[in-house]
Design a binder for these strands. Structure first.
Lengths: 347, 347
DNA sequence: CTGAAAGCGCTTACAG
DNA sequence: CTGAAAGCGCTTACAG
């Protein structure tokens, strides 16, 4: 470790006190221009940077924002499941979140949890004081939500519904997204439209399922329960669900998958059954991941506005940290992207 | 913020001094069993957790490990490009890295950089003191490598070759991986085997290209320069390179793509040219991402051992932090996974 | 084995 | 406008 330059060193070089150095750094009280110049020069000369640990200690507040991603409390890691393709979509959100957060001068921390039988939650955060937290696609039942709440950590959730004095959430307009795809298929002339969604365990899945219902109702048609299938948001499950579907309901002419990855699985099942897309069956997804244009055929899907989600989430969080009441929930519009996987049903 | 419980509080409850509290927490010097019990009880009763900022300050060392991912210095963010499908493979590595790091009691930080014209690198880290750093797929030319080096931060690189007293690296056996796939195709009877790799800008690309050469040499055949194509590790570039290839060299019977994503692009190009896989052309990838079994046909590829990479990287880093000389480089074996995209060439 | 004291690097009233 | 002093919560020699 190279010797650490302290504010003391800067003060000496600039012939002022540490208090003054601190003042010019924090731009707080007014400092005589002359002194300010000397300090700035000294900082440049010495390459001084304030020690974050000391600052956090004396200010009694952290500059770190915790990031948590779709983690089961079982393992308590932040990135554990990030490698699962089902979550690829959030990666891009994450990227924008990073921009926004670091632009605001905060650091992002992936806090580790330790099992702790003594604690009511069964685990504890390491007590790095947190300025705030951003939780992505966390199951609402996750015990960490309670831990965060108990600690009064300002927290914003993406795609989970949690809301109180210190907590807010933001999510895509899932309902309208699937409503649009379903309406699109309906307009094309489809009537036997199946939906594969995770309406049992995922809020987003339930909302997307709702959009499907709304489209049918809006068009004056009834939903056929035999065409509603539960499936997790991944390729394997989409594959399995589609296999069962086409076996049991060979009359289906279109499939609405509640995620693009599910659609990849569906595509494979259809292929193995000798069914062509879109000649025999139309197919839609949700998310608009980068793979979509490369699929065979390119997939009609719903685009989520990742940038708006990230911006909105961070803005909400900053407000929360500042003590501003949370204008939650924030709902981000979604947009239908028509490609080659949808067309009118066979005669 | 709920009132913070300090070691003072614990000391009072346990009727000992703060020094003793500190001792039982750090398990350092010996403490009378009786006193230790009282302290432990007091900790439980109060829910005390040491303040990390204070600990870092007094110990003059951080418990944070910085994570950096394939970032261009231009933007200086850690996750910026994580959403690019070309890097999906590393996500899974990341996940294991997180396990290993937090198991060792460290926190993971995504440090923000700020532009700083004054500094020799053109930007500075915020001076959160770092215990170490783990850099994934960083271009060696990245200026942060120099910043890290200048600060003597113990650093481990995954898939970049950097090595000095405080730096070590680990990577997959790229050479042998492509050597295996190429040998597999050669053994199948292919002779006009093309390779698409990023040998211009990526070290891994160069290594994979080398494996191709080795296989040809090992079998006593010459490499045909017209079948060697440069392509970045993504779908778009693989698509473009394959388009040009089949147009210029319709006699090709097999294509070795240096990544699975490239192979996805190649697959699309072949499809659009009316070429069947594997009947007309065999195709291989590299990485074994989750998509492979879902491709049409399922892709023959090379599997990288993500767990071994993560473990190895963190072990290296811990050694470096402890001051142990770095046994770099570590090379992790790769394994050929044969699926349905390869078969003997058409007669 | 254990406590009193000093000190990590910073900021913030408090005087001037 | 600016400096001396106190203090953030912890750990670590130093005595005992």
């Amino acid at each position: 470790m190279p010797a650490l330059v302290t504010s003391q060193d800067v003060a000496r070089v600039a012939s002022v006190s540490r208090a003054t150095v601190s003042r010019v750094i924090n731009g707080s009280a007014r400092v005589k221009p002359d002194a300010r110049e000397r300090v700035l020069a000294a900082i440049r000369a010495t390459g001084y940077k304030p020690d974050v640990a000391a600052q956090e200690l004396v200010r009694q507040q952290s500059r770190s924002i915790a990031l948590g991603l779709f983690t089961k409390v079982d393992d308590g890691f932040s990135l554990s499941t990030i490698g699962q393709p089902g979550y690829y979509f959030y990666l891009d959100v994450l990227r924008h979140v990073e921009h926004e957060i670091t632009d605001s001068g905060y650091d992002i921390v992936l806090p580790s949890l330790t099992r702790d039988e003594a604690s009511p939650q069964g685990f504890t955060w390491n007590t790095r004081r947190l300025a705030g937290a951003l939780m992505i696609a966390l199951p609402v039942t996750d015990k960490r939500v309670q831990a965060l709440r108990a600690a009064h950590v300002p927290t914003v959730f993406i795609d989970s519904i949690v809301h109180d004095e210190h907590m807010a959430y933001i999510r895509s307009d899932n309902v309208d997204g699937v409503r649009q795809t379903t309406a699109h298929l309906l307009a094309l002339g489809h009537r036997r439209i199946a939906i594969l969604s995770d309406h049992n365990t995922a809020l987003a899945g339930l909302e997307r399922f709702l959009g499907y219902h709304q489209a049918f109702e809006g068009a004056g048609f009834a939903v056929d329960p035999g065409l509603v299938r539960q499936s997790l948001f991944n390729m394997e499950d989409g594959y399995a669900a589609a296999n069962a579907l086409v076996r049991e309901r060979p009359d289906v002419t279109a499939i609405v998958a509640a995620s693009d990855l599910m659609a990849v699985g569906v595509r494979r099942a259809l292929r193995e059954h000798g069914l062509r897309v879109p000649e025999d069956i139309s197919l839609t997804g949700f998310d608009d991941i980068e793979l979509c244009p490369f699929m065979d055929p390119p997939l009609t899907t719903v685009r989520q506005d990742r940038v708006a989600m990230a911006r909105g989430a961070v803005r909400l969080l900053l407000n929360l940290i500042a003590g501003t009441p949370a204008p939650s929930p924030l709902v981000v519009p979604t947009e239908l992207v028509v490609r080659a996987s949808t067309r009118p049903p066979p005669p």
